[in-house]
Design a binder for these strands. Structure first.
Lengths: 307, 307
DNA sequence: ACAACATGTGCAACTCCTTCGAACGAGTTC
DNA sequence: GAACTCGTTCGAAGGAGTTGCACATGTTGT
């Protein structure tokens, strides 16, 4: 291994281009530097210095060594920083997984506030669809899950609280055939039309929201895309009521009563009680604030303006 | 910086889960290990060991440190290997740039033979179009250029030799309008038809082979694609005679005489006389062999079978 | 051409750090 | 409760790293 001193020595030799100057630069005796240099060569079993001329020079091998050694120093410095950070109770990294029905933008202020803490914790945010959130937690891909749907499954050391409930509305474009059907819609009536589903492209499991067996589907990458697709009459399906509200008001989407209404979804925040660090605690504290929870659940209404 | 011993110490503590066993494992006295461990904590200014219970354990910070330290050790071992390699005269890496008119496959046997040397030199092969090869050499993106076209430009420390000459044939599909024109074709006659050009997609400079100003062009990614495109009548242009030979024989391409014939191209091998390592020398030695040079220049004829 | 200076190296002496053994307190096992 | 395992403290010993000096070699200035 390369010691700190040896690294500094190499660097000094490179920059000054001479042993004695390097020695002066390091505040050591010239003989020390000479000795240490030889020792380095012995240890690496390679000629690092070209001593044929008056002032010695680094050989290509020595050049490579100093260059790469410099990078190593940086790596070690970073590691040092990370170790201290972890020792102070901050995680090395925090992986937050949100359910796709939450809009990423609503988390931005929280991320900004977290950044302002200067904790050094590397944030990683991804999203999953349906049970994918719980699975991510179980498999250790997630440290914190926000907005998970369905009941929390049995899992050792699982902890959770409710974020809130989300109301749904079955809505169609005014130009869609279902718009003209009077009275509450039955499952069969809906099944004859194509439904729009949010599907996760990254993991190719056939997961999607609100699929009924055998129904034709249009898979889109996000809830926002689903709302827009239904506005344009490309298909039908359940939408978060608040996010569709503006379009419902402007008449670009029409609410349809259903023979089997959809129960409001309860959304959960969940984590594992092992490795609870300061970053996780901070996030939990934020998410327990009713104002933030409400903003997350409601999401950003899709504006009626952009047609 | 982390010394070799400290690394071994951390690893031993992690695997044995106790200081005394770690000491026995390392062949040292327990007191030594205890002392060193404390010193580590002082240096990192962080609690690395949890001593509250009977047998001490690594804290999360200590865990992180040992884990990452292990990676560092590997990095250093690799660096060690590379330094030795360079000290033995091998380059750390060799960047070979070929002109696009050479077929990559013809270099495969050479690459295999080079691999068999077990030199440890990391090969990197890319291709350029037209002057791009010389530019790559000038800008240090290439250590060796194979098959460069045009005359070697003025460049300090440039060295080169001729690889051979490449003959061209102007060929069109039998279904192409130009196929029926009798006698040598003039520039104007050709200019009325779309030409197929090889263009480099990676660098978006508007470089291509055989463009005449104002002529409609079809840009394709390789010489092989150009030959196939011309076979299918998508355009016209000059082709390496040998590579088109099979298609000319089978009648899928027809050679046309030209009022201004194209001079055979001389192809060059070039490198810079600074940093000449063993890998470069080896490649030059190979490329000087007439058999290989001929194979490179002629390339792989595009087979007449696959329609 | 000669002196003055700079540079790298070998050697003996020195200094400080690492290592060790012994002793001790605390916790565990039978 | 005795025998043990474990981690720590402390002073002493050994050794690696460091230093000053002498010397050979090469460079610069007058």
């Amino acid at each position: 291994m390369l010691s700190d001193d040896e690294l500094a020595l190499l660097e000094a030799i490179r920059s000054t281009g001479s042993l004695s100057r390097a020695a002066a630069h390091l505040g050591k005796a010239p003989s020390t530097v000479s000795h240490a240099a030889r020792q380095l060569e012995t240890r690496f079993d390679a000629l690092l210095f070209d001593r044929r001329r008056y002032r010695l020079q680094l050989t290509p091998a020595g050049e490579l060594l100093t260059r790469e050694a410099g990078r190593l120093v940086q790596d070690v410095a970073r590691l040092n920083q990370r170790v201290k950070q972890v020792a102070n109770g901050w995680e090395d990294r925090l992986h937050v997984v949100t359910d796709e029905i939450l809009e990423f933008e609503t988390l931005l202020p929280v991320i900004r506030a977290f950044d302002a803490l200067q904790s050094g914790v590397r944030l990683r945010l991804t999203h999953e669809v349906l049970g994918g959130t719980w699975e991510a937690l179980r498999e250790g891909r997630a440290d914190l899950v926000v907005g998970a749907t369905n009941e929390p499954p049995a899992m050792p050391k699982l902890r959770w609280f409710e974020l809130g409930t989300m109301d749904w509305v079955f809505a169609v474009s005014p130009r869609h055939p279902l718009a003209k059907v009077a009275g509450p819609l039955s499952q069969d009536a809906v099944g004859a039309h194509r439904s729009v589903v949010v599907a996760d492209s990254s993991r190719n499991v056939g997961r999607a929201y609100g699929i009924v067996g055998g129904q034709a589907t249009l898979a889109v990458p996000s809830m926002r895309a689903k709302i827009l697709a239904q506005r344009d009459g490309l298909g039908v399906g359940w939408l978060p009521r608040h996010r569709a509200s503006a379009l419902l008001r402007s008449g670009q989407l029409i609410e349809k009563a259903m023979s089997e209404p959809r129960e409001p979804n309860t959304l959960y925040v969940a984590w594992r009680s092992d490795h609870e660090g300061r970053a996780l605690s901070w996030w939990l504290e934020q998410l327990r604030q009713p104002r933030l929870a409400k903003r997350l659940i409601l999401g950003l209404p899709v504006s009626a303006e952009n047609r």
